[in-house]
Design a protein around this nucleic acid. Structure first.
Length: 417
DNA sequence: TCTGGGGTCCTAGGACCC
DNA sequence: TCTGGGGTCCTAGGACCC
């Protein structure tokens, strides 16, 4: 196996860029990217954090994930726009379609990132770097937003390369360039080194990616276990994982969680929120033609204490009511009576729903499944709000939280590239 | 006017069995 | 009565990504 050529393509300030382009296309004269601005949630409903910042906003030291409140304090004239996930899905798709013109082997890693295997494309295209510039400029011209492209011989180096200088840039980190371009960077810049790992490494005087690369692997393994081996390899540019089309990969779980605009203080309201979360989870589960054997509920209190509770169930299910019933049991066992800020429902241990085994005691589940499917098809034809349970009337609880992903699903990123 | 939501993977401890 | 170890399954929590 010869050397590979891998591209990593990353949208610059994705949500914000996409919103800016959308506004310009609809006659807006101000380009959000040229002023301090962020995409962020609404503090009124307790969703007030920064999701994406413009480059001018970055100059005010505004960080992704910080509160809108503190971002405004750093820059009073900051423009805040709400997220629009439907738009992002469209942009993401259009972006991927262009990439697939350059190689058949394209992997979507997240809503705004793709890997592309350019090995063997040399017969069609003169030079990878030259082609990367072409792709970048085409995306800018046709779709209106800029990307960074990183090029190397594997995924980790391509990804690290695309993170170098932004925006609208092409970078390479070929193996012979690792020392010059990557080892000087602070340790937290390395993929998979988050706050906890950075702290542990820095406490042992490992402050740069280069220092980690040169550290003794046995020592790293001793205090960071398998994760240490992973990041040590990344620091050395070692990665043999393949770019894989994300059609066939098994989805592991489906979840929906929400921060409630008010503190929930009674079980009845909590159960209603769980129902709204379960409606989304269960309909997505049925849409993907899976059943689940594990249900978990997570909870965050008004004091930001988080905990979770899960249970394996006897036979796999996909009914809204059945999942909701388990979720309520789990909540009742978990909840100690504190005011609840956030609730989540997640199903996992999925299996195909075609050869479902139903025990005799669960025979009315068949009827229930027919009801679910009927409701699913009504919502498909007339919109998600066409039917909802009367228990939500005047409850102050949104009857369906989160969104169903109506386009084809792509599996989310994992730590192993 | 405080702190999102969607994922994946790993680890540790206890139960249980041989 | 005591001492043991290995294997699997289950659960909770933590770390990381975007």
């Amino acid at each position: 196996m010869g050397n590979r050529i891998i591209f990593h393509i990353d949208v610059n300030s994705a949500y914000l860029s996409w919103e800016a382009v959308h506004r310009i296309q609809h006659g807006e004269t101000l380009d959000l990217r040229t002023v301090p601005s962020v995409v962020g949630g609404d503090p009124e409903t307790r969703h007030g954090i920064v999701l994406t910042k413009s480059i001018p906003a970055k100059k005010y030291n505004i960080q992704t994930g910080e509160t809108i409140y503190s971002a405004k304090a750093k820059c009073p004239e900051l423009i805040i726009v709400p997220p629009n996930y439907g738009l992002y899905m469209q942009c993401s798709r259009a972006f991927g379609d262009i990439l697939r013109e350059y190689s058949p082997l394209v992997e979507q890693y997240s809503i705004d990132e793709y890997f592309m295997d350019f090995t063997n494309m040399g017969r069609l295209y003169t030079d990878p770097v030259e082609t990367a510039y072409k792709i970048k400029d085409r995306i800018k011209e046709e779709l209106g937003f800029t990307v960074n492209i990183g090029i190397s011989t594997n995924k980790i180096l391509a990804k690290m390369a695309s993170e170098l200088k932004k925006p609208d840039k092409v970078h390479t980190i070929f193996p012979y360039e690792i020392a010059d371009k990557m080892w000087c960077l602070p340790i937290e810049e390395l993929f998979m080194v988050g706050r906890a790992t950075a702290k542990k490494l820095r406490s042992r005087a490992i402050n740069t990616i280069g220092a980690l690369a040169h550290a003794d692997l046995k020592m790293i393994r001793l205090f960071l276990k398998s994760h240490g081996v992973l990041v040590w390899n990344y620091a050395n540019g070692n990665d043999i994982s393949a770019v894989r089309e994300n059609r066939r990969t098994m989805i592991k779980g489906i979840g929906n969680s929400t921060t409630i605009p008010f503190d929930v203080e009674d079980a009845t309201t909590a159960h209603l929120v769980l129902l709204s979360l379960t409606e989304t989870v269960a309909s997505r589960l049925r849409q993907t033609e899976y059943c689940a054997r594990l249900v978990s509920v997570s909870l965050r209190t008004n004091e930001f204490y988080s905990c979770s509770h899960q249970r394996k169930i006897a036979s796999a299910i996909d009914c809204t009511n059945a999942i909701h019933e388990v979720a309520c049991e789990l909540f009742d066992e978990l909840w100690k009576g504190e005011p609840v800020r956030h609730l989540g429902v997640r199903v996992s241990e999925l299996c195909r729903n075609d050869f479902m085994q139903l025990s005799l005691f669960e025979k009315d589940y068949e009827k229930q499944r027919v009801v679910d499917r009927t409701i699913d098809s009504i919502r498909e034809r007339f919109g998600p709000d066409a039917v909802f349970r009367s228990s939500f009337l005047n409850s102050g609880v949104r009857f369906r939280s989160g969104g169903t992903v109506d386009d084809e699903e792509y599996p989310m990123m994992s730590s192993i590239l």
